[in-house]
Design a protein around this nucleic acid. Structure first.
Lengths: 158, 158
DNA sequence: GGTATTATTGCTAATAATTTGTACTAACGT
DNA sequence: ACGTTAGTACAAATTATTAGCAATAATACC
């Protein structure tokens, strides 16, 4: 499906900034990007866009279900295209890379816990933080060739 | 153990602000509090303290392992006394109450996933968001008689 | 116990991420 | 093509949190 059609389906007018951002998310080598990552990437590609627009559009995309917002440790949000099924995340605290996984047993137990507590579940977030194999064995991540996401490098928050 | 002794054990000098904050956390009816909750509660109790001190001390407590910091949806941190074993959280998005649970199966599967991915796990956070039974059946939470935590009521962030 | 030394507090101002206000511009329906 | 309405850009505002620094309090030493 074309980006334009995706926007329409999501109930969003197909505007140039939205197309730029959506196609950036679809083609970027980094899957989990902060608003600023998206902003800077677009500027780097020679595209013109305002930071506020990026924030606004990403929030619209989130509400429309086009992207998922994550709040990993560090305080700033990262956005991920909602193009796969649900999954959880393993975040390497050294190289910043994000590994995705889906574990049926965990999902089922979560539902069971919610049921037993009388909760109707809306959503959940499971983030696991650790150090990946590449870093431990080679001092650098063999998989991750990209720059560290700003969430782990530039953020001074803890 | 006295609060003073706890501070010492944690390698922190026993100062008045630290004692106030620790005892506030130990005696508060709300288990998960934002820095501002702690600050306002102390002011309400007639105690004098600075907001910056609350932030500083809570961070020190976190580093010392006395409290756990959580980042529930909404962007602001909540702090919880680290006086029980590890557990995860179910957050009611209507009444703001937080239910704690521990599920051995989930913990084991998490470890297994990490092992299989070559990760050495440092920590994890599992937050489940939904609507509790009290709200669904009575329109209000039967368990939660306290005021809503500011994270869900005063925050304008999504 | 009294004082020096050093850590800690309490202000206020700074910061960082994100949101809003508003005047300009671009989509979409006709 | 053209007007209406929604969307964008920029700057200014907000919110949570942190940093700088002078004032103060807590241990160490006598």
């Amino acid at each position: 499906m074309s980006s334009s059609a995706e926007l329409k389906k999501a109930g969003l007018k197909t505007t140039l900034p939205r197309l730029k951002i959506l196609s950036m998310l679809e083609n970027a080598s980094i899957r989990h990007m902060t608003a600023e990552d998206v902003y800077k990437s677009l500027l780097d590609s020679g595209e013109e866009i305002g930071l506020a627009t990026v924030y606004r559009v990403l929030t619209q995309f989130e509400n429309a279900g086009l992207v998922i917002r994550h709040n990993f440790e560090g305080g700033r949000s990262v956005f991920e295209l909602n193009d796969e099924g649900h999954h959880d995340h393993l975040v390497c605290m050294e190289c910043g890379d994000v590994f995705e996984f889906y574990d049926k047993a965990i999902e089922e137990r979560q539902q069971k816990v919610a049921d037993e507590s009388g909760f109707v579940l809306d959503n959940h977030s499971l983030y696991m933080y650790g150090v990946c194999e590449g870093i431990r064995k080679n001092g650098k991540c063999s998989i991750n060739k990209r720059k560290l996401p700003s969430i782990l490098t530039t953020s001074k928050r803890r």
